[in-house]
Design a protein around this nucleic acid. Structure first.
Lengths: 129, 129
DNA sequence: CATAAATGCAACCTCCAGGTTGCGCTTAAT
DNA sequence: ATTAAGCGCAACCTGGAGGTTGCATTTATG
């Protein structure tokens, strides 16, 4: 059960611009982070935490109309993406923002934008009268 | 069926730093874009297209080991997120990269990073001997 | 005109992301 | 010593994401 000869119709009608060939900068790496950011609840949690203050689970659950356990799951997703770090203090576990993955993802987006800008520049140079 | 008195345990043990209160800059807006980026296949498609060249569906399906239809779905997800735009030319539909949402998302990440940096600066100033 | 290419559409399938409920355990608070 | 807060864990439920197959349609091609 693979692709039933459906794909691979025209291998590559043109191979141009291989000097600036479109590579895959950070494929798997960034996808997980993006996926973690791709949820409104998680995005909200992260935004709250990005002020540098550490918060407990129930602290983050308040004003959320979601269950504490739901928030807990979201926090674990964020933690697995490295966007947040937890540490138990007393009976409550405190969560803190972790900026590293953000930087990584920003770099990725910057590279994509750069590639796009370069393409535009090249096009403009070509059309140049 | 809501939260069964489970949440809302301690409303707010402290209300400090309300001057730099953590707002939600672009909650719903960005989430869709992030979600669209949160898939390795889609990320790969977008990276290919970010070189400015327009590609057909089967052109993008080649070398993917996924079905053409699967790729089509992914492309539609990207299109709904505004990351890509399609136009039919002849019997094939060409897809092109669209940078606007990327810029939007970059702005969001920049604001989060900024908020974090500000928090650090404030902390450092406080600890300052 | 007959055939192949490139898609669109729809039905289907499977799995897991998000959510909830219930319960037990540990750590404050009174 | 009790009681309440704050969590962790596990079972369960549901909808939609990601894929596939089959078939019809439109547009090139020889």
């Amino acid at each position: 059960m693979r692709a039933a000869g459906n794909n691979r119709s025209r291998i590559s009608k043109l191979m141009l611009s291989d000097s600036v060939y479109a590579r895959d900068p950070a494929p798997h790496l960034a996808a997980h982070v993006f996926a973690a950011l791709g949820d409104a609840t998680r995005l909200s949690l992260l935004t709250k935490l990005s002020d540098g203050q550490t918060r407990s689970i129930s602290g983050l659950s308040a004003d959320t109309n979601l269950t504490r356990q739901a928030i807990t799951k979201h926090l674990h997703v964020l933690e697995n993406a490295g966007l947040v770090i937890s540490s138990k203090v007393g009976r409550e576990s405190q969560f803190a923002f972790r900026p590293e993955p953000i930087a990584e993802v920003r770099a990725y987006l910057a590279s994509v934008s750069q590639q796009w800008d370069d393409a535009l520049a090249r096009l403009r140079a070509f059309v140049e009268r």
